[in-house]
Simulated assay, not measured.
Amino acid sequence: MGTVKANKVDLGVESFGNENDPLILLIGCTTMLAWPEALCEALAAGGRHVVRYDLRDCGESTAGNPMKPAYNLRDLAADAAALAELLDDRPAHVAGIGVSGMIAQVAALDYPDKFSALTLVGTRPVAPGPVDNDLPDHDQATMGKLFSRPMPDWADRESVAQHSAEGSQILGNDPEAALDLASRIWDRTASAEPEVHMANQIGIVFSKLDCTPRWRERLPELAIPTLVVHGAKDPFFPVGNGEALAREIPNASLLVLENASTAIPTSAFSQVADSMLHL
Rank of each mutant, 00 (worst) to 15 (best):
A155S: 15
L73Y: 00
A178W: 03
D156L: 00
S159Q: 05
Q105A: 10
N133T: 14
S275R: 15
G167L: 04
G59N: 05
L179K: 08
Y71Q: 13
D88Q: 11
N173L: 05
L87G: 06
D274V: 02
G122L: 05
A190M: 09
D180L: 08
I264F: 10
V196K: 13
A107D: 06
D134S: 14
L181P: 10
A246T: 02
A104V: 10
A82G: 10
F16W: 13
A177L: 06
D75K: 02
S100W: 02
E41I: 14
R149D: 06
I202S: 08
D234A: 09
R214S: 15
P194E: 11
L146C: 04
D21R: 02
K208L: 07
I204K: 01
G12F: 04
G59M: 03
V272F: 13
G240R: 00
E176C: 03
S267A: 15
A63D: 03
H197F: 07
T123W: 01
G167I: 00
G101H: 07
S15C: 14
S100Q: 02
G167Q: 10
A141L: 04
T3I: 15
L227Q: 04
I103E: 11
A177K: 09
N72V: 00
A190I: 11
E14T: 14
F236R: 00
R56V: 05
L277Q: 14
L39T: 11
F115R: 07
D132I: 10
H230D: 04
H93W: 05
A177Y: 07
V131K: 00
R149E: 09
A155G: 15
E14Q: 15
A268S: 15
R216F: 07
N241W: 01
M151K: 13
E60Y: 09
G2P: 07
V99A: 13
E193I: 07
E158K: 12
T212K: 12
G172M: 00
